[in-house]
Amino acid sequence: MRYDLLGPLRIRHAEQSFSLSAPKVETTLATLLIGDGRVITKEQLITELWGDRPPRRASAALHVYISQLRKFLAGAGDPHGQAIVTRPAGYELRRGDALWDVGEFKEAVRLGRELRAAGRHEEALASFEHALPMIRGPVLDGTAEGPVLGSFATWAEEERLECLELSVEARTALGRHREVIGLLSTLTAQYPLRESFYRQLMLVLYRSERQAEALQVYRCAQRVLRAELGLEPHRSLQRLHQAILTSDRLLDLPMAG
């Protein structure tokens, strides 16, 4: 049995995929999953389901959703109905030996960082590339609005972007500059306030003998940051700009930037 939460929620068991059609029940399951073995209080679940304006019979409705969820999980690989445990304060979801994508994603990124620190860039890249497809889209198709699910969705997006950065760094360390230019151009357009993507794009353009374009990327970053935030680029971006202007030989080293 496997839980997938990094995107539309689904459960897989014996080569079958199961999903919930009832949004409230889906939200309940997602919130319990994020608890990862911790008790989620009834108050937390009610807030996730209805915000600060719950219906008068919210507790009774929650009880119904938990009952429906137990039936769903029984049909999706939890035949003994032991995954959801009732506690005095709320509910706990016990995954047991079930797999879940969040744990696998974290482990793949952790391993990639470890390999990167050891200078094993090819293996690090493979680990990051293994992790990235696990994030299949916005959590719950972008409908996660409560504090627990909202925070988790923000975390997942930030982790995805950081994993992309690490993947690019690994390719750059391997001298594979040209193959990430298109990706970084798209990322700087999608995330215009994220300076790390500008930095990476400037470096790979320079190493691809496109110095003028690298300098143009800096001017674009400077213009955007001034207009949106009233700030100058971070010192690290300014230093890279200066190094490109002077064709600093340090930029030719595999790990520069």
Rank of each mutant, 00 (worst) to 15 (best):
E15A: 13
S17P: 06
S19N: 11
L20K: 09
L20R: 03
L20G: 09
S21T: 15
A22N: 15
A22P: 00
A22C: 14
P23N: 11
K24G: 02
V25K: 12
E26F: 01
E26H: 09
E26V: 03
T28N: 06
L29K: 12
A30K: 09
A30D: 14
L32R: 02
L32A: 12
L32S: 02
L32W: 05
L33D: 03
I34V: 15
I34C: 11
G37A: 08
R38D: 12
I40D: 02
I40P: 00
T41N: 06
K42I: 01
E43D: 08
I46G: 08
I46Y: 14
E48G: 09
E48H: 13
L49S: 00
W50C: 06
G51L: 01
D52S: 14
P54Y: 02
P55G: 06
P55V: 03
R56C: 03
R56V: 14
R57H: 10
A58V: 01
S59R: 13
L62R: 06
L62D: 01
V64W: 10
Y65R: 15
I66S: 10
I66R: 07
S67Y: 11
Q68F: 00
K71E: 15
F72Q: 07
L73D: 00
L73R: 01
L73H: 03
A74M: 13
G77S: 04
G77E: 06
G77R: 09
D78K: 01
V85N: 08
T86Q: 15
R87T: 15
R87P: 01
P88I: 09
A89V: 01
G90T: 10
Y91M: 05
Y91H: 07
E92T: 06
E92K: 06
R95V: 07
G96K: 07
L99A: 14
W100G: 00
D101K: 01
D101P: 01
V102M: 10
V102H: 06
G103I: 11
E104M: 15
E104L: 14
E104H: 14
F105G: 07
F105A: 08
K106Y: 14
K106S: 15
E107Y: 12
E107R: 04
E107F: 03
E107W: 03
A108T: 05
V109Y: 00
V109G: 01
V109K: 02
V109M: 10
R110W: 09
R110C: 02
L111N: 00
E114Q: 12
E114G: 03
E114P: 08
E114C: 07
L115M: 09
R116M: 15
A117T: 07
A118L: 12
H121P: 05
E122L: 13
A124P: 08
L125D: 00
A126G: 00
A126C: 04
S127Q: 04
S127V: 02
F128H: 04
E129H: 05
E129P: 02
